[in-house]
């Protein structure tokens, strides 16, 4: 299997879906002639032309809204936000239009749109450019939220997201764009709502999504090598829909759980999952469910400190050792 960068895996997904369905169109700032600010759409404008791959002005509210309006008439837009942080400018369109139009029309309308781009801290671009909205957006019934951690997952989930008939918020990560993973030549799809057991284990379950799943994997290696603890790593991949069965099955096996995310703690994804574990796994638990999030403050610029603001493998190890 070829080793492919995360960005190129996404690029393959777009290319394949542009070929498969003539209603798929890519839009966003600098996605066409500039090849994408992070080169995720590199070469696609040259191959597919103006109609299918389209640059927009810096007008997130209007171009996201335009995509939503077009999707109501059957176009399947894949909209890039150069940073998911800029979604705040388009918040009304996403929350009030994409998410609610199906409901408020009594099911007469649906909105098959993908809104995508990087949503992460860790790149020293300050608080305005480092938001992670997955918990905000998963709070809105009508939206789906996906956070792939690897190139393989990014490609398979993106192809599924484009074919999905509901609005999918697809959150990538600039720190992962240049990382490589094995990606098969043949076509594959990954369903939304299916977690991935990225490492099997018996003593504790580490539940994470996005880049935090990779941090959890590194922690699991340390736990095995230095502490003789066998940690299972569940990568949620999709936040809403959520693979509750995979979470429960793992915790019922290991009887302990630590939840890791790069999001802030208050009402974070981990808060939702710990509530589920409390309700459904209480008798299976041998220790309190613990959470690790980004340090609860706006994303700091200082490169040395931002590295420490986000969860690191040793933070996870320490938390695990406190209950194992």
């Amino acid at each position: 299997m070829a080793l492919i960068e995360y960005r190129d895996a996404l690029n393959q997904a777009f290319d394949e879906e542009l070929a498969r369905d003539e209603n798929v169109v890519l839009m966003g700032e600098e996605v066409a002639q500039y090849d994408g600010a992070y080169k995720v759409t590199k070469g696609l404008w040259k191959k597919w032309g103006d109609k299918r791959v389209m640059d927009t002005p810096i007008s997130e509210a209007a171009f996201i809204g335009m995509g939503i309006g077009a999707s109501m008439l059957g176009i399947r837009p894949v909209m890039e936000l150069m940073f998911w942080s800029f979604a705040t400018v388009a918040w009304d369109q996403i929350i009030n239009n994409a998410a609610q139009v199906r409901y408020m029309s009594g099911g007469l309308i649906n909105c098959p749109i993908v809104i995508r781009g990087p949503a992460n801290g860790g790149t020293n671009v300050g608080a305005t450019h480092s938001h992670t909205h997955e918990n905000f957006l998963a709070n809105v019934p009508g939206l789906k939220v996906v956070c792939p951690a690897t190139a393989y997952d990014a490609k398979g989930l993106m192809k599924t997201a484009i074919r999905d008939n509901d609005p999918v918020m697809f959150m990538e990560n600039t720190l992962l764009y240049g990382e490589k993973w094995e990606v098969p030549e043949e076509e594959y799809l990954i369903p939304l709502g299916k977690a991935d057991v990225k490492r099997e284990g018996t003593d504790i379950t580490l539940i994470a999504h996005g880049r935090a799943a990779l941090t959890a994997l590194r922690a699991a290696e340390i736990l095995a090598a230095e502490h003789n603890i066998s940690a299972e790593v569940i990568d949620l991949r999709s936040i809403r829909p959520l693979d509750e069965e995979a979470i429960l099955a793992s915790v019922r096996k290991t009887h302990r759980a630590v939840l890791i995310e790069e999001n802030k703690p208050f009402c974070g994804v981990g808060a939702q999952i710990s509530s589920i574990l409390m309700e459904k796994c209480f008798d299976d638990l041998d220790a309190p469910v613990l959470r690790i999030s980004s340090i609860d403050a706006p994303a700091i610029y200082s490169p040395e400190l931002e590295r420490k603001q986000l969860p690191r493998p040793l933070d996870i190890v320490a938390k695990v050792l406190s209950i194992c």
Partner: peptide, 29 residues
């Protein structure tokens, strides 16, 4: 929030001005 897509009628929107990008999207489609 009244809608009738079968009559080319797309609402019915509650947020002042929020429908203006959607109208653009219909035209784009």
């Amino acid at each position: 929030h009244f809608f009738a897509p079968d009559k080319n009628y797309w609402g019915g929107h509650g947020i002042v001005g929020g429908q203006t990008p959607l109208g653009l999207g219909l035209a784009y489609a």
